[in-house]
């Protein structure tokens, strides 16, 4: 990740080797690949008797540093609410690099509300000795609980080999809004091999399950059926038990983005864009289309820098699916 501690095999030769978090983890876990890092972090929240949410377990390790946080940006659902738990994920080391293995478990306890943000984008890099990196995130959102999960983009750097796997299990009555953004390489570089999978279930029924594979080993992803010449792809998944009786309408609010109902009480905003800034604008515009409480009240106008000509305002009702 950006703005993180130097690594033992990085170009920062002056860095202290003896006390880097990476080496601590190496000693603790006896990782097989030299320099590879294994990090396990756990986060739980629970609701107290007065319906305020508080953090239960906050266990950081190695590269995954969890810390209590203040509101970072305008939030859908929880904007300016003080009784919710806010946690930020920060980087304790650069990476993941090839060979690294990260896992994050999140449990939003029944009736509680968690806003999980991230300090910086995650830059996925090749390892010093090759090898594949993994990141597994398992999320359970309990009955009547709410998760607002707004991570920063993942950047698949040239030469990386990374497997990203996110499972979100929503129990009955749970609410969710989560964003995912992937950038294909840093500025003007092609991405390495990057596979990302997101599976969301609601009340044990599958709601959304999509994998995206890019990089030299993935064929056809640059075709116009997949992502074309774009530099970034992303989505927002929103789930609300109130949509059990009917979801909002489809909206083709932008030529490269849609808001559409999922097969269940959920909506997806799906977008491609030339860069991360435009991707974020398109995703936010999709969420704004849903209106309150999904649209943050003091959010800046989307596409405010002359992209309005691209925006089409056709909306329609769908009964499909």
């Amino acid at each position: 990740m950006y703005a993180s501690l130097p690594r033992d095999h990085s170009s920062h030769k002056h860095s202290s080797h003896e006390h880097s978090p990476r080496e601590h983890v190496l000693r603790d876990q006896g990782a097989r690949r030299p320099g590879a890092m294994s990090s396990r972090a756990v986060l739980t929240t629970e609701a107290d008797a007065r319906a305020r949410s508080r953090v239960g377990v906050l266990r950081s390790q190695g590269a995954l540093v969890l810390r209590p946080a203040h509101p970072k940006e305008s939030e859908p659902l929880t904007h300016r609410r003080r009784e919710v738990a806010r946690v930020m994920l920060a980087a304790g080391a650069a990476g993941p690099l090839g060979g690294d293995d990260y896992a994050l478990d999140v449990h939003v306890g029944a009736g509680s509300t968690l806003v999980l943000t991230e300090a910086s984008a995650m830059l996925v890099l090749p390892g010093p000795c090759g090898g594949r990196s993994h990141m597994r995130i398992n999320v359970r959102v309990g009955e009547g609980a709410t998760l607002v999960w707004l991570p920063e983009p993942i950047i698949a750097a040239c030469g990386c080999d990374h497997e990203h796997d996110v499972r979100v299990c929503l129990e009955r009555g749970a609410r969710l809004v989560m964003r995912e953004e992937t950038l294909f390489g840093r500025h003007r570089e092609p991405p390495g091999d990057f596979r990302t999978t997101l599976r969301v279930t609601h009340d044990d029924a599958p709601l959304y399950h999509q994998q995206l594979c890019v990089g030299p080993q993935a064929d056809g992803w640059r075709g116009a059926a997949v992502v074309g010449e774009n530099g970034a792809v992303g989505s927002i998944i929103a789930v609300d038990p109130a949509w059990e009786s009917g979801t909002p309408a489809t909206s083709t609010f932008h030529s490269s983005a849609i808001l559409a109902p999922l097969p269940g009480p959920g909506m997806v905003v799906s977008a491609v864009a030339p860069d991360s800034l435009q991707l974020r604008r398109r995703l936010s515009a999709g969420l704004d289309t849903l209106g309150a409480p999904w649209a943050p009240r003091d959010a800046p106008l989307p596409e405010s820098e002359g992209h309005r000509d691209e925006v089409v305002s056709q909306t329609e009702h769908t009964g499909a699916g």
Binding site: T197, R199, P206, H209, Q210, Q211, L212, C213, A224, A225, V226, V227, G228, V233, S235, T250, T252, S255, S256, A257, I258, A260, S270, A271, V272, Q314, E316
Partner: peptide, 21 residues
């Protein structure tokens, strides 16, 4: 069934919804 392949095609989804309109 839950482990079957899931490779997505975002531009196909976007194009299909625009086409429908």
């Amino acid at each position: 069934a839950s482990e079957l392949p899931s490779r997505g095609a975002p531009l196909s989804d976007i194009a299909a919804e625009h086409h429908r309109s």
